[in-house]
């Protein structure tokens, strides 16, 4: 039985804890403080919390202004409003002037569930990836979320952190350390490498077990730091297994899959399969039903791994 934990809760608690020591931390929200858990920070430090109302554009550009006064600014709302709705504010007022704004978005991906396509953000990584100066991190569990928030508070510059709505299995132990710009090798494998982010990391670990039963040695890498991406590790894995599967709760366009593909084609071309949401909008449903319908299950990852191996065999 897996232990489940909420990354959102962890974010709220860690932010509050860090806020005690560091008085330059301020948090902004757009009427979703209870959902994003910045309410925990707000309760402790009401003077350093600014609810900007249902007005995300103003929140993001005001966050930029606050950053110019030396504040470490956390701006939070749902991923769909934290990126798409305010893309221009992020581009012009945060990324271009390289300001110290940490966008921590919750409710990323299709696991948002019942709210449907309007609230299921599947393009956020794509939108943030194209922006110069932007750091993008998608933690895989609550433990990594804790480490990432502690890292990002000290990181100087624009960043985007995406957290899920749902609780997720705890994957890492207390001694886990997050290394910015580095992929984290969870397990080594000789035949194929599965590179995953967010909720898909847990599934990738299970897929590797499934594959092992079939006699296939699959390595698993947590690529939580999507930008800057760990080029060296991708090239190394390509050299070692010659077959890579990427797995993400994001559109197949512009996300982890294409980030890895870009490194591969320019450095070490090899077979790649992508587990991602096809180029369609989501719909209402239970999180797990949606993950199944849109091809993000353990079995989907294993199947893609086997397909990668078949293609590799043909190539050789």
């Amino acid at each position: 039985m897996k232990i489940m934990a909420s990354a959102r809760e962890v974010f709220g608690n860690v932010l509050m804890e860090l806020g005690r020591k560091d008085h330059s931390i301020v948090a902004l929200n757009a009427d979703l403080s209870s959902s994003t858990k910045t309410s925990i920070f707000a309760k402790e430090f009401p003077e350093r919390f600014f609810n900007m109302g249902i007005a995300e554009q103003n929140m993001m550009a005001a966050a930029a202004g606050l950053a110019t006064t030396g504040k470490k600014v956390f701006a939070s709302t749902f991923a769909v409003f934290a990126t798409g709705r305010v893309y221009d504010q992020i581009r012009q007022s945060i990324a271009y002037p390289r300001l110290n704004v940490k966008i921590v978005a919750t409710h990323g991906g299709i696991t948002v569930g019942g709210d449907g396509a309007s609230h299921q953000m599947l393009e956020d990584i794509a939108l943030m990836r194209v922006l110069p100066n932007m750091t993008i991190i998608i933690p895989a569990d609550a433990v990594e979320t804790d480490r990432v928030i502690r890292y990002i508070v000290e990181h100087e510059g624009p960043s985007y952190i995406r957290l899920p709505r749902t609780k997720s299995p705890v994957l890492f132990s207390d001694d886990y350390t997050f290394e910015p710009g580095k992929g984290h090798v969870i397990s080594e494998g000789d035949d194929v490498t599965i590179m995953a982010i967010g909720l898909l990391v847990d599934r990738a670990i299970d897929a590797a077990k499934l594959l092992k039963n079939k006699g296939i040695s699959a390595g698993v890498v947590n690529m939580s730091c999507v930008k800057p991406i760990d080029r060296e590790l991708i090239i190394e894995c390509a050299g070692k297994t010659g077959a890579i599967v990427t797995a993400e709760e994001h559109s197949i366009i512009g996300g982890l899959g294409e980030a890895v593909a870009s490194v591969l084609v320019q450095n070490a071309p090899c077979i790649q399969e992508m587990v991602a949401i096809p180029d369609v909008f989501g719909e209402s449903g239970e999180s797990e039903e949606l993950m199944t319908k849109y091809g993000l299950t353990v079995e989907d990852i294993a199947r893609k791994a086997e397909r990668a191996l078949e293609r590799k065999a043909v190539m050789c």
């Binding site: 103003n58 550009a61 005001a62 202004g65 950053a67 110019t68 221009d88 504010q89 012009q92």
Partner: peptide, 8 residues
């Protein structure tokens, strides 16, 4: 956007 930044 500059106006919002001024508010920040």
């Amino acid at each position: 956007q500059g106006f919002s930044a001024a508010i920040g």
